Amino acid sequence: MIRVRVRRDEAGRITGFTVQGHAGFAEAGRDIVCAGVTAVVFTALLGLRSVARIPHAVRQEDREGYVDCRLEPGTPEAERTAQAILETMVLGLRDIEKDYGGYVRVTEGG
């Protein structure tokens, strides 16, 4: 199962997220759940870097199906843009979870 943990601060802003595991929906290379989660997450990371231009730290371990992203302080505009990108990522992941809940779980918290 893919587990996504979205971290939020006391104001509800996303401060980072962790993705861990493999869906196991189908064999590697044919797993549409894994492909969907990967596309949503890596598009969000691309948006943080290229659109929001907000500082962030990313740690990735391909073999383990692990990605951890932590936002760092940025300009107010960069932070607003980053929140829009990350909230959209959460919407996409929740939509995948709705249809494939046995293979992906999204949780949120501090």
Rank of each mutant, 00 (worst) to 15 (best):
T81C: 01
E61K: 12
I96F: 00
G21E: 01
M1V: 13
G110A: 08
T88C: 11
G16F: 11
I96Y: 00
P73M: 01
D9R: 15
G74S: 11
E10F: 07
R53W: 03
L45H: 07
V58S: 03
E108H: 08
T18I: 15
R3E: 09
D62M: 08
A78K: 03
R3M: 10
I54P: 06
R7M: 12
E79W: 03
L48I: 01
H22V: 06
I32E: 06
V51A: 10
R63E: 11
E108F: 08
I32T: 11
V4D: 05
T81W: 00
G36E: 00
I32W: 11
R13M: 07
V106W: 03
K98P: 07
D99W: 00
E79D: 09
P76D: 01
C34Q: 09
V41M: 05
D31Y: 11
I32L: 14
R105M: 07
T81Q: 00
G24S: 06
E72Q: 13
L91H: 10
M89C: 07
I32K: 09
E87V: 12
I85V: 15
C34K: 12
R49L: 14
D68Y: 12
E27W: 14
P73G: 02
L46D: 15
A11V: 06
I2E: 02
D68F: 11
E10L: 05
M89S: 02
R53C: 13
R80D: 12
H22Y: 08
E72D: 12
Q60E: 14
R70S: 14
E10T: 10
T15Y: 09
G102A: 09
E64P: 04
V58A: 04
G36H: 00
V40I: 14
G12C: 11
V33I: 10
A23W: 06
E87L: 13
F42E: 14
A28F: 06
A23M: 04
G24Q: 06
E79Q: 14
E108Y: 06
I14F: 11
F42A: 04
D68P: 01
G101T: 10
Y103V: 03
V40M: 04
Q20F: 09
S50F: 04
R53A: 13
V51D: 08
D31P: 07
E61M: 08
I96A: 04
T81E: 02
V40K: 03
D95Q: 02
I96L: 02
G29R: 10
V6N: 05
A82L: 10
C34L: 13
L45E: 14
Q20I: 03
F42G: 02
D31T: 12
C69G: 02
R7F: 13
T38E: 08
R5P: 00
F25H: 15
V4N: 04
T18E: 15
E77D: 11
